[in-house]
Simulated assay, not measured.
Amino acid sequence: MSPLDNELIDRTVCTETRTALGANYVRILGYFREDGTQSVGKIESAMRAHDAVAMVDASHSLKGEALQFGALRLSATAETIEMTARACVEHHDTPDEVIELVAALRPMFEETLAFLEKGASPLVQERHPQGMSRLLG
């Protein structure tokens, strides 16, 4: 089974994470957006450079962060990239066999974020006259 065949989001995990984080969900999701964007960029750069070593850490980080939000497809794809890159490092090979997964990674990450951010929509940002803001849940 290809990691691309996985369900996009495990809704149970996603709901549990949102509940556990409460008002912090939006902030933590923002960190995931920033870190995930960097990880995806590093994986893409490593692919262009045929650098399996550089691919390992970035895909490992993305895998773990995605899993915390229940992002099954993204996590499984990152894990496949990571494991393949690790094998390539051991065999002194290039990670060319994951090029299709790497190409699918950014759109998948964006689709995942769109879903997670849509789930955050009940948390509305209210602006106060003094320029301060607070989250309403």
Rank of each mutant, 00 (worst) to 15 (best):
S39D: 15
A120Q: 02
E44L: 03
T37A: 12
A78P: 01
A58T: 08
D5C: 05
G30M: 13
T112Y: 04
T84R: 13
S133C: 10
V98D: 06
A49H: 13
P3M: 09
I81W: 02
D51E: 01
A103E: 09
S133G: 12
G119R: 13
D5A: 15
L113I: 10
V102H: 10
E7D: 13
Q68D: 11
V124Y: 04
V89Q: 15
S133I: 14
S45Y: 02
R33D: 08
S2H: 11
L101F: 08
L8R: 12
E90L: 13
S39P: 00
A66S: 15
A71P: 03
R27K: 14
I43Q: 06
G131Y: 08
E126P: 00
K118P: 00
A103D: 10
E100Q: 13
H92N: 15
E65P: 00
A20F: 15
I81Y: 04
L62I: 07
G131A: 09
E16F: 07
M47S: 07
M108G: 03
L116D: 02
G30H: 05
L74F: 00
A104C: 03
G22E: 07
E111R: 11
R86Q: 13
Q38E: 12
L74M: 10
L113W: 06
A114S: 12
T80I: 07
L8I: 13
H128W: 06
R33P: 00
P95A: 14
T94L: 05
R73E: 03
S61V: 02
